[in-house]
Write a protein that binds this DNA or RNA. Structure first.
Lengths: 334, 334
DNA sequence: TTGAAAGCGTTACCAC
DNA sequence: GTGGTAACGCTTTCAA
C-alpha cells in the first residue's frame, strides 16, 4: 500500500507537504497540491486510519449502542443516523447491548481504545447510571435517545410517552368505549410507565375509574402481547390500548383465535407505527413515533458537539434536550 | 488515559514487558505478569486500538456490507454473525450498500484505510465484478453470501433457490392446484431467476404448461407484491408462489381487499420465513432460509481464514463453497 | 526473563 | 511555501 512517504518521494517534497496537500490545508502552492493529488490518485493512495487517529486522537467514528440493531423498531432510527453520518463523513459502529449489564463492557471497549469519538445510546432500560458518570467524567460526548435524563449536562431526546398514551386512550374514549384495557410494556422501562400514566390520565379525564385488573403485564414482544390479550379477553373490554405495535400484533392474533372481530368486538390501538402495522389484519391504528427524525436528531446533536470541539470553541456546558411529539395514525383496528 | 508506559513505570519494568504480559506471550515471569495485570486493572487500562493496529497491521474488525442493515430479512443473519464475532473477539463494522454503485466506495474506504481485516458481502445484485478482482488482487479475505460465484478462489455461501422455488410450487401442486401464478422478485437478482426456475421445473414435472402471463413482475418489496397480485387476480389462478415473504404480505392484502379468502379462494406460499410471517392473517406458508446459520457460517469461514493467516500457515488457495437447503414451513395460507 | 530501541503512517510544530 | 523531526501508543526484534 502506498503511503504518504511514497508520494512525497515521487513528488520530490516532504511528507508533511503531502499531508497538508491531501488534507486541504493552507500553506501549499496550488500547483504542487495538484501534482500531489494526481500522484496520490495514480498510486491509489488511501490514508491509513490507524496512523491518522493515533496522532489526531480522533477516529471519525461514532458508536451506536442499542438493544438490538435488528429490531424493526430501530430501522428508521438507523436510517436517520446514517443520513447524518454520510453527510458529515462519520463512520457508524453499531453495538447491540441486549439491554444487559454487558453494556458496560461494550462501552468501555468502544471508548477506551479510542475507537469512537462519541456515542449515541438508545434505550431506556439502562438501570445503572454509572456509565453515564463515566462518560461525563471522561468528557466523552454522548447523546441518550429514548430517555429523559435530568442532569443538565446530558444531551437527550425522547418521545412524550405520557401524551402518546393519553392520545391513544382518549381516541378510544371518543369512539364511545368505556371498558378499555391496557397491555403494558416491561415495567422496568420508563416508557412503559409513561404510557400507563397517559392511559390513566385519559380515563380520569373522562371520569372512568381506573382498575388495575384491566392492565395486563406485557414485555414489548409479540408473544407477550398475545398472552396478555388472552388474560384480558374474559374481562369483557371493548377496546385495548397496547403499549407497542409488536405486542399489538400478538393481541390481534389472540382476538382472531378467539373468534372475535377487530374492531367490532374489540378495538385496538398500538404504539410506534412500525412499517408492518399497515399490513396487519385489520391495519393497525397506532401512535406514531417519528423514529427517523429522532435518529437523525441524535446524530445531529452529536456531530455538532464534535464539530465545536474540533474547532476548539468553548462548548456550552448545557446539554441539548429535545422532546418529540407523538401522532395518532388512524387505520382500521379502532 | 493510561498507556503501557504508565504501567511500565509503576511496575518498574520496560514497556515491552508490559506488552508481552498483557498479551499473554511467553517470556514473562508469572509473578511480574500478575503484578502488571493488577496495575493495568487498577489504572483501567485499555489498549489503544489505533496504535496496536498500526504496528500489527490488523484491526480485529470485520466489515459487513449488505443492502440494508435494517431490513428484517437480515436480522437473523446479523445475529448469527454477531455470535461468532463475540466468540472470536472481532468487532463488526456494518455498512449499507443500498445495492448501488457506491458499494465500490464503501469497500474501498473499508479496506484501504486498513480498517477491516476481512469482509462479508451479502447480496446478489452486485453487478460489477470489479471489486471482487480488487479484493482478490489485494489478497483481502472475503466471503460472499447469497451468491454463488464460480471462481474457485472465492468463498461463497448461498441457498439452493431453484430447489426452494421447486418445493413451494410442488407443494401447491400436491394440494391439487393447477392454475398456479408466480410473483417474481427483481430480475436483476440471480435469486429471483433461480426461484422462477424452480417454479418452472415443478410445473413441468407435473405436466402443467408454463405461461409467461402467470408470472407477475415484483421487486421483493411489499408494495410491489400488492401491485403484482392485483395484476394476477383477474387471471383466475387458485394459487400463487410469491418469491419472498415481504411481497407475500402485499399479496395477502390485495386478496383481502378483493374480498377473497386465503387459502380457500387463493393459496399463497412465500419465501424466506421472516419473523413476521407467522403473524399474518392467515399465517404464511413459506420456504425457510436458515438465515441465522448462514450468517454464522459466513463469519466462521472468514475468521478461520483470518486465524490461518495469523498463524502463518499456508492457507488453501481454494475458497469454501457452501450451499444451504431450503425448508418448507406449512402454516395456513396454503 | 528483561530492556532498549526501531518503526508502523500520520500529523503538527518550528525552523528555514 | 516548504522541509525536518518529534511525537502518537504499541509490538517486535535483538541484545543483555
Amino acid at each position: 500500500m502506498a503511503t504518504i512517504k511514497d508520494i512525497a518521494r515521487i513528488a520530490g517534497v516532504a511528507p508533511s507537504v503531502v499531508s497538508r496537500a491531501l488534507n486541504n490545508k493552507y500553506g501549499v502552492k496550488e500547483s504542487t497540491r495538484q501534482r500531489i493529488i494526481q500522484i496520490a490518485r495514480e498510486l491509489g493512495y488511501y490514508p491509513n486510519s490507524a496512523a491518522r487517529s493515533l496522532v489526531t486522537r480522533r477516529s471519525e467514528t461514532i458508536g451506536i449502542v442499542m438493544a438490538d440493531i435488528s429490531e424493526p423498531f430501530y430501522s428508521q432510527s438507523i436510517k436517520g443516523m446514517e443520513y447524518v453520518a454520510k453527510q458529515t463523513g462519520y463512520t457508524l459502529l453499531f453495538s447491540n447491548s441486549y439491554e444487559n449489564v454487558e453494556q458496560g463492557q461494550v462501552l468501555h471497549k468502544m471508548i477506551s481504545g479510542e475507537r469512537v469519538d462519541g456515542l449515541v445510546i438508545v434505550g431506556s432500560n439502562i438501570q445503572e447510571k454509572s456509565f453515564i458518570s463515566l462518560l461525563l467524567e471522561r468528557d466523552i460526548p454522548f447523546v441518550l435517545v429514548e430517555r429523559k435524563f435530568s442532569d443538565p449536562r446530558v444531551n437527550c431526546i425522547w418521545l412524550d410517552n405520557v401524551k402518546g398514551g393519553y392520545m391513544a386512550t382518549k381516541y378510544l374514549i371518543e369512539k364511545g368505549h368505556r371498558r378499555i384495557g391496557h397491555i403494558a410494556g416491561n415495567l422496568y422501562f420508563q416508557v412503559a410507565l409513561d404510557r400507563i400514566e397517559g392511559y390513566k390520565r385519559a380515563l380520569a379525564e373522562a371520569g372512568i375509574d381506573f382498575s388495575q385488573e384491566w392492565v395486563a403485564a406485557g414485555d414489548f414482544l409479540t408473544h407477550g402481547g398475545y398472552r396478555a390479550m388472552k388474560e384480558l379477553l374474559p374481562l369483557g373490554c371493548t377496546a385495548v390500548f397496547v403499549a407497542n405495535d409488536a405486542m399489538a400484533y400478538g393481541a390481534l392474533r389472540a382476538i382472531s383465535e378467539a373468534g372475535l372481530k377487530v374492531p367490532d368486538d374489540i378495538a385496538i390501538v398500538g404504539f410506534d407505527d412500525l412499517e408492518f402495522s399497515s399490513l396487519t389484519n385489520p391495519p393497525l391504528t397506532t401512535i406514531r413515533q417519528p423514529r427517523y427524525e429522532m435518529g437523525r436528531k441524535s446524530l445531529e446533536i452529536l456531530t455538532s458537539i464534535l464539530r465545536e470541539r474540533r474547532s476548539g470553541d468553548e462548548a456550552s456546558p448545557d446539554g441539548v434536550k429535545v422532546c418529540f411529539q407523538p401522532e395518532l395514525i388512524v387505520r382500521q383496528s379502532a
